[in-house]
Simulated scan of single mutants.
Amino acid sequence: MKRLIFILSLVLAVPAYAVQPDEMLSDPALEARAREVSKDLRCLVCRNESIDDSNAELARDLRILVRERITAGDSNPEVKQYLVDRYGEYVLLKPLTGGVNWLLWGAGPLMLLIALVIGIGYLRKRQSGTETPVVALSEEEQTRLKEIMGE
Rank of each mutant, 00 (worst) to 15 (best):
R35W: 04
L25D: 00
L96H: 07
L30N: 06
T97A: 10
C46N: 08
S26H: 01
E31P: 02
K94S: 15
L65Q: 04
E49Q: 14
P77K: 06
L58D: 03
V100F: 10
L92A: 01
V45G: 04
C46S: 10
L83T: 05
T71F: 02
L96E: 10
L41F: 03
D74S: 11
V84M: 10
D52E: 07
D52Q: 11
E49Y: 07
L104S: 10
T71Y: 02
L103G: 07
C43P: 01
S26I: 10
D85F: 05
G73A: 05
E89V: 06
R47V: 08
I70W: 03
L25G: 01
S54G: 04
R35F: 09
S54W: 07
G98Q: 11
P28L: 11
Y87S: 07
L104I: 15
R42L: 12
L44G: 06
L44Y: 05
A72D: 11
P95L: 15
V79L: 12
G98S: 13
Y90G: 15
S26A: 08
S50F: 07
E49F: 12
D74V: 09
R69F: 15
Y87I: 10
V79Q: 08
V100S: 01
L96Q: 10
L62Q: 01
A56D: 06
A59F: 03
N48H: 09
D74H: 07
R47D: 11
E49V: 15
C43N: 01
L103Q: 04
N76D: 13
P28Q: 09
R69C: 11
L83N: 00
L103W: 11
L65Y: 00
N48I: 09
R63V: 05
Q81T: 13
E57C: 07
I70T: 01
D27T: 03
I70P: 00
D61C: 07
Y90D: 12
G106H: 05
E68N: 15
T97F: 09
S50C: 08
G106Y: 12
L93G: 05
